[in-house]
């Protein structure tokens, strides 16, 4: 089981902040998110990612118990 959390405007757009699911990679997680929310997959794939608090790239594999964070592009304040 992997816990996926979404932040930024994407969270408001897709109406979901958190999802717990079985998945083995970030790419697959994006596909599942698109299915679950109806938001286009590319919206998720263009995010910044972190697994267990560490910044990673899109090609990263996931294992059981990981926490994946998706941060929609943001800036400024």
């Amino acid at each position: 089981m992997v816990t996926i959390k979404i932040y930024g405007t994407l969270r408001l757009k897709c109406g979901m902040g958190q999802l717990e699911t079985y998945t083995d990679s970030i790419k697959d997680a994006c596909r599942l998110l698109a299915l679950a929310t109806g938001t286009p997959e590319k919206e998720f794939r263009r995010c910044k990612f972190a697994v267990n608090g560490k910044r990673v790239g899109l090609g990263t594999k996931l294992s059981d118990g990981d926490e994946l964070v998706l941060l929609a592009p943001s800036g400024g304040g």
Binding site: G8, T9, L12, S74, G75, G76, G77
Partner: peptide
Amino acid sequence: LGTAGLVSA
């Protein structure tokens, strides 16, 4: 989100 949107980032 306002400027508050930056907390997560």
